[in-house]
């Protein structure tokens, strides 16, 4: 089955979403990530969505779920690189992604994770 690769960098996991995800692929990513957080003893998750040209309510919900689940597993999630047009559209759609932390790029996302984990 199609899968989005998850990279491990120290105590962080990095996911770069580069394909237009159909719903099942997004669901797979969600369960793969939670598994990997546990197996890799990860403290932080970075999800880079700079290549995504839309985020609809389904993907938005998935991002929210990943953030809450990882928090329960004692890992912080930061979503990085959302494009301006995507952000404007999400706001209009009515999705605030409350509970999801964001950063402009991977580097700033890392800083944010390091600072919050201490």
């Amino acid at each position: 089955m199609e899968r989005i690769p998850i990279l491990k960098m120290g105590s962080f996991l990095l996911v770069t979403v580069q394909v237009d995800m159909h719903d099942q692929l997004a669901m797979n990513l969600q369960s793969d990530l939670t598994d990997k957080i546990v197996s890799a003893k990860a403290r932080g998750v970075l999800i880079d969505i700079s290549a995504l040209d839309i985020v609809d309510s389904f993907i938005g919900r998935m991002l929210g779920n990943i953030a809450s689940m990882s928090r329960i597993l004692d890992a912080e999630t930061v979503v990085v690189g959302m494009q301006p047009a995507v952000a404007i559209t999400l706001v209009e759609l009515g999705l605030a992604l409350t509970g999801v932390r964001t950063a402009l790029n991977i580097e700033k996302g890392m800083d944010l994770l390091r600072a919050s984990i201490g």
Partner: peptide
Amino acid sequence: AAARLMGA
């Protein structure tokens, strides 16, 4: 709100 989603 949009800026916040982008991380700013």
